[in-house]
Design a protein around this nucleic acid. Structure first.
Length: 296
DNA sequence: AAGGACACCAACCGCTGGATA
DNA sequence: TTATCCAGCGGTTGGTGTCCT
């Protein structure tokens, strides 16, 4: 068995911001040789950078087709809708926005859109109004493992919301109760995520989150009931195989992937169509949510 | 004017799946 | 078959600019 040489000596390559001179070298190299093996680029272009770093610089900043102006309201609306439908799969979302990179979209989401949604009273993870989350999971108290409760792991009896620590803030009782519940929901997300990640890293020890006698299903927390969507889209042939595969990764749906081999492949246009269908459903369910988008 | 808080975003990190020797 | 590399991806960090007091 042969061994390839490492792409670069990571202890000696330059890190940090790129200079105009370095940018010029990348541009000149790509102009002359095109995009190819990035591991050779630093050497051939005369750069003391890791090939991966060169690729990122090109992909996220130097590519001539990139837009460098701010996001338009239309682009923001698209990001919100795609995120609502498929979650934080930035590369897929970016492909629907010409001239934008996954990094652009991700940064814009994290710095702007997430906050806008929160200010509108919409949970940026589920895209559902906070009020609905609270009512949906009002009895969450019964299903959180005792040793994972936030703020007080000494408690061994169900937490009494009415006794949430009021010494920290001067919230009114309703606010206190809502805050306490949101803390629990947040903690619950953490539990679910940790369990999910451990189950994907070691398939033989798949962790079912055996929360006691509860209608709770962890995929319910995923954006747009992802598992059900994956299933629906699989059944209807809406999602192209690649989309389904990545959309359902980590959801314990591998058994369904196999059936895709025989599935009719569809175009990305139908994928977009499915997104818009979901959007229409969302608009039906939460008309006030989409009305808010127009305010951006 | 100073400096602390906050926002932004380029760049890095670490993981994954596919390719390769 | 196995070990390693590479490209792509999402999450996170840190530098810098701007705003606020």
């Amino acid at each position: 068995m042969g061994r390839r040489p490492p792409c670069c000596d990571k202890s000696h390559v330059k890190k940090g911001p790129w200079t105009a001179e370095e940018d010029a070298k990348i541009l000149a190299y790509v102009a002359n040789h095109g995009i190819g093996n990035w591991t050779l680029v630093p050497q051939k272009a005369g750069l003391n950078r890791c090939g991966k770093s060169c690729r990122l610089r090109w992909t996220n900043y130097l590519r001539p087709d990139l837009k460098h102006d701010s996001f338009t309201p239309h682009e923001e609306e698209l990001i919100l809708r795609y995120h609502q439908a498929i979650g934080s799969r930035w590369s897929l979302i970016a492909k629907q926005l010409p001239g934008r990179t996954d990094n652009d979209v991700k940064n814009h989401w994290n710095t702007k859109l997430k906050k806008k949604l929160s200010k509108m009273g919409i949970d940026p993870i589920t895209h559902k109004p906070f009020g609905q989350l609270l009512s949906d999971y009002g009895n969450i108290n019964d299903i959180i493992p005792q040793n994972t409760r936030p703020s007080d792991q000494r408690h061994h009896e169900p937490m009494d919301f009415s006794q949430a620590d009021s010494s920290l803030t001067m919230m009114d009782p309703l606010q206190e109760q809502q805050q306490a519940r949101m803390n629990l929901i947040t903690a619950h997300f953490q539990v679910i995520n940790e369990a999910a990640s451990s189950s994907t890293s070691s398939p033989e020890s798949k962790v079912q989150v055996n929360l006691p006698s509860s209608p709770f299903v962890w995929s319910d927390y995923l954006v747009g009931d992802q598992e059900q969507e994956c299933t629906n889209e699989l059944d209807s042939g809406i999602l192209p195989t690649g989309e389904y595969t990545s959309a359902c990764n980590g959801l314990g749906l591998d058994h369904k992937k196999k059936n895709l081999d025989d599935a009719t492949s569809t175009t990305s246009a139908s994928f977009v169509e499915s997104i818009l269908n979901q959007d229409r459903e969302m608009q039906f369910d939460y008309p006030q949510l989409l009305d808010g988008y127009s305010e951006y």
